[in-house]
Design a protein around this nucleic acid. Sequence first.
DNA 1: TGATTTATATATCAATATGATATATCATTA
DNA 2: TAATGATATATCATATTGATATATAAATCA
Lengths: 186, 186
Amino acid sequence: MKENTGKSKYVILGMLARMPLTGYTIKKWLENEYSHFWQESYGQIYPTLKILVAQGLAVCSDKGEHGNGRGQIVYSITDAGRKELSEWMREKPEIEKLRYEILLKISFGENTESEVLIGHLDDFIRRNEDLIKEMKDCMENFSQLMGEGIDCTYSRLTALCGEYVYSAMKDWAEEAKKIIIEKGES
Amino acid sequence: MKENTGKSKYVILGMLARMPLTGYTIKKWLENEYSHFWQESYGQIYPTLKILVAQGLAVCSDKGEHGNGRGQIVYSITDAGRKELSEWMREKPEIEKLRYEILLKISFGENTESEVLIGHLDDFIRRNEDLIKEMKDCMENFSQLMGEGIDCTYSRLTALCGEYVYSAMKDWAEEAKKIIIEKGES
DNA sequence: TGATTTATATATCAATATGATATATCATTA
DNA sequence: TAATGATATATCATATTGATATATAAATCA
């Protein structure tokens, strides 16, 4: 079993801190709510869950115990797990490592026609428009829940970040298009 | 030798398309000019360079041939390499996968004190201010080069993206701080 | 009713990527 | 001249992804 010094451990602990979950529901929840700023694969989730249990940070039900007959294993956080999570929360977040393929292609722009770059930027603008809409819908949904007395301040904050960043990306791409078109005309 | 279907291959080709480089200079150049949106490690660069040669996409000098006696191996792109790069340039860029630890910590905010979150946000604001300054300096530098007749449109565009995104991040963090403080007061 | 498709669920693995480290030479500085 | 730092190649354990295998249950449909 690997040491697992990465972040997967804490992501899963953070999710388990809200409610008991199966590996599958962790994956689905990540895809729906976290995918804009975090990803985990099954290849990380299942081994990490076992490590959490081995380290006493989580406990698991027997296969099928709470189950619907499909052999599901439900994991719950322990007090030690909450302590570990709380300690990690205090640590300074690491500088993010990104891989923006569109920026790579723009920076290598001299190796293709400007039409190709503009095509990529158009796709990018459209995608960011969709994402902005998604974030706004999300915000509205959270606002409604807040009205009903359900506190989702922190989830709302991550959606707000999405709105800000995707808007900036869209604005940049539109400006970039203009600059590339100008360059072509000169 | 691995298949290497990832992106490292194209990043290196894109850099070699400008000038012949050693593995070391590729790494340093990436750190200086690309690190805001792309990273590669030595563990990727050196094996990938060998694969590029094996696939006829690059050629290398003998150890020390052009060298200063330090055994450097200089890699140059071939016509086949330029063709491969050009084909990749046309492909739609993949959706970026990000890992923003600060957003993860904000979204798990209920597991710590609001002072901890505000501390992280303050650090984040300061870092983004530095980055905005760095991007602006970079832009100015490129503008000067443009004045001297050196075309660096594409590098300027990536710096512009940095300016937009880091500004958005800073604005978000300031708004997030306000919301967290408000929540604490209510 | 039975057949097909979709969703739930665990699990593994090859390929990819990171981060740290080992080794050695040359250049600069104290 | 000894120490430090920059240049340079290389490897490895760990981390991570993306795809796939396997199986059951639920929903849809003919």
